[in-house]
Design a protein around this nucleic acid. Structure first.
Ligand code: MN
Ligand code: MN
Ligand code: MN
Ligand code: MN
Lengths: 219, 219
DNA sequence: TTTTTATTTTAAGGTTGCTTAAACTTGTTA
DNA sequence: TAACAAGTTTAAGCAACCTTAAAATAAAAA
């Protein structure tokens, strides 16, 4: 397992969730920032190794074994993120960048020490589930976009979807973070924007697009 | 800077101290576990880059810039070791193995967070000095081998030299660790072995060879 | 000083992971 | 159905970092 293979498997897994099972070469190439030809090469190679289900011109899928490996890397990534955030105080953008490298260079043993130190947590600071040692993924049942909360209902923010560094800035601007309790004051169907009230009484209006990237559970 | 270059520079630095300035290609090759030819290649390459002072058939030396880079890597290595030991409870053998990889994949920013978390320490858990951000190396003044302590004198263990995994076992066996207070009870000139008394009153005899790898300051 | 030995360098080649450009499939549009 | 456009594969090649084996050099021994 090299860094390239790690990232290849991990991003098939993640992209598979985002695109509902239709991971294409160009899709993955964009994500990994390599040429499409490089993806074809790697896919064929990992196909032979039994990690990827590769058929020319077809969507890419992980095999059972490929899936297990992907989950192990994601586990390391998200445990590192939580550790760096909670213990060392790095911000949510930095933790991702550091974890992106550390995930490939940490033994299972060290990762288990970190998991124990954190009390075997289920979610990372972005609200994403941390797979267990056995590959079990904590459920996110009841987590829905903020756009589905009705007027006057309360909810707890569980997950913020990070699309780029700009979303990070916006979450900062509005003070949005996991664990926050919000009450939806008003929904504006005109443009989909939503007025919410924080626990401290302050109120802001979020754009529909931003709100659709904020996930929460009803309170 | 790649992992290979990191390790090349770091080990010239360390070997330079151990051999008093006579770092040969075969010497370094053994340390890095690569062929001697690979060392020559890399030395010439880094010579062109101004990191190594390379002259065919001569001993290898770091340039000013190469030295700075080596110290940065050593700083990361030793800070990681202390962090993994003190915070996460890894044993002294594991911390070295993990640090050996993490040192290459940690940003300066993260390392500074870790340094602050630890209170900007001067020594790693093996007693080796941790270079500062500016490249200043904490002094080890007064640190001498246990073999130089006279009968009935007390000393504090400051540094254990790890030669291989066996030394590690022996330090464990005798409960030797940095910070320990010892009193030399008796020196046996016959074979150089030394009888020491621990603070709890127990007494053991250490071989001369083992004692020469234990460093301490007089109390 | 010449010869022998140990060490270092040079040469040739392999693997991994990438690139660009050309050839090929596939599904859609005319 | 034929042509086109988009996406994918194949081909050729490059850089980094290794290897082994042969040639060159330096140091030690005869
Ligand atoms: Mn990564
Ligand atoms: Mn995350
Ligand atoms: Mn290393
Ligand atoms: Mn150390």
């Amino acid at each position: 397992m090299s860094v390239s293979i790690d990232n290849f498997l991990k991003n098939i897994y993640l992209l598979n969730q985002e695109t509902a099972g239709a991971v294409t070469s160009s899709n993955l190439a964009g994500r990994l920032e390599v040429s499409v030809a490089a993806v074809t090469d790697m896919a064929r190679k990992l196909g032979k190794q039994g990690l990827v289900d590769y058929k020319p011109y077809k969507a890419l899928n992980l095999t059972e074994r490929g899936n297990e490996l992907a989950l192990k890397i994601i586990r390391k990534h998200r445990l590192w993120e939580l550790f760096l955030h909670q213990v060392l105080g790095l911000d949510l953008l930095s933790v991702h960048q550091e974890a992106e490298r550390l995930e490939h260079h940490t033994s299972d043993e060290l990762m288990n020490h970190i998991s124990r130190f954190l009390g075997h947590p289920d979610f990372d600071p972005h609200g994403d589930p941390i797979p267990g040692i056995g590959g079990d993924v904590p459920s996110e049942k009841g987590v829905i976009p903020l756009t589905e909360i009705l007027e006057n209902q309360q909810c707890i923010v569980k997950k913020l979807r990070y699309r780029n560094s700009e979303t990070s800035d916006m979450y900062d601007r509005y003070g949005l973070m996991t664990g926050l309790v919000l009450r939806v004051i008003r929904v504006f169907p005109f443009d989909g924007s939503i007025e919410v009230k924080y626990e401290d009484g302050s109120e802001v209006v979020l754009s529909g697009k931003l709100a659709s990237n904020v996930f929460c559970v009803r309170k």
